[in-house]
Amino acid sequence: MTTPSTTPAVRQAAAHLKEKLLRLAAPALGAEPSDIEARNDLFQVRFDPSRKMSFADVCRRIPGDSLSAEGERVPNYEGYRRDQAGCQFAEVEVDAELGIVRVLRVVAVHDAGQIIDPLTARSQVNGGVLMGVGYALFETRRMDPRLGIMVNPTMDDYKLVGPLDVPEIEVRFVEVANGFNNTGVMGFGEPAHVATAAAIGCAVYDAIGVPVRSLPITPDRVLAAMETRA
């Protein structure tokens, strides 16, 4: 939620700052601020492009050392959907005699609105898929019911995904325009994680012909599920 929480305020502050720059440029260009267009490095009068100033020249007119402006995140605009949409696919290989599942490939297709930084967005999906593989196959808190203690509280016993457990991950973004805030950015913290375990569970079902109804899908559960096959 960091990007959709912060970017609308940042964008509004930037718009306010731009207005201040236009007001500084207006007397020198002999025009109203609303008649000036700022594009790339140039401030230009809309109806007379010969009247223009560089960005650097406008900045020289800033009184003091700097110009500042504030912005805030206003309530979301009504009438737009605000939920992400996406789908994930998993390809697994099951050793049918040992019950061991390996995730070979995960394809993650997501509409998270406008992607501001493709590298970190992709990384968010990679991380979500990795944790999702652990959620599907390994991770669980094991409590001794009589002693009331967690018996696997260490990094050795609590099983997190390791390098050899990582599938090939393919990430696709479908950026559907969305006007519910001024940047069109949506929260994207959980979708890749939540969908992964479900996709892996369905892929295991497809592979062995019976569903495994509990996570994590450990070898003992796969073997037990396969014994129920007719």
């Binding site: 050793d95 061991i100 995904v161 450990t218 070898p219």
Partner: peptide, 12 residues
Amino acid sequence: EAREKQSFDWPL
């Protein structure tokens, strides 16, 4: 050996 995880796990 058979393990739950392929990386850094003890054999079942």
